[in-house]
């Protein structure tokens, strides 16, 4: 079983990572690499679409925690599109809902990122 990972960028350069398949300890390494590469290229706001992920385990959560830890250093965040109830449940059980932003679909997630970027920008303007 292979995990399908595709990365696309919006016009304003927000990366969207679309994952298809079950993410577990076996399949998570490619997922980890993809996220690390993006962050290394200074993408500190990343949208991850888990809409086609029927199952993920603690290793997958570990990858996401690793990513969030990296982008937080630069004031960024990880936005998740988690439509399947079970995937949401995994975040609830581990109380990780608090450290990710969860959305119902991609447009909402992208809009969320833009709002935050705008807010951060005006803050920076006000500060300067």
């Amino acid at each position: 079983m292979v995990l399908d990972i595709a990365v696309e960028k919006t016009v304003d350069n927000i990366p969207i990572v679309r994952v298809k398949g079950e993410i577990d300890l076996h399949t998570c390494s490619a997922f980890r690499e993809t996220l690390r590469d993006l962050i290394d290229q200074k993408n500190f706001e990343v949208v991850i679409d888990l809409g086609d992920v029927p199952y993920l385990d603690s290793a997958a959560l570990g990858v996401l925690v690793d990513a969030v830890r990296r982008v937080r250093e630069y004031g960024g965040g990880i936005s998740l599109v988690a439509t399947t109830p079970f995937v949401r449940r995994a975040f609830e059980i581990t109380r990780l809902v608090k450290i990710f932003m969860l959305y119902d679909d991609e447009p909402q997630a992208i809009e969320g990122v833009r709002d935050r970027v705008r807010a951060a920008g005006s803050e920076a303007e006000a500060a300067s």
């Binding site: 570990g62 925690v65 690793d66 969030v68 830890r69 581990t94 608090k98």
Partner: peptide, 20 residues
């Protein structure tokens, strides 16, 4: 034990088993 604030990526396994 897991850290719920996202400071450590491991440690969720045993906790998840107990919860589930």
């Amino acid at each position: 034990p897991p850290s719920f604030d996202g400071t450590r990526e491991g440690g969720f396994g045993v906790y998840m088993i107990e919860q589930c």
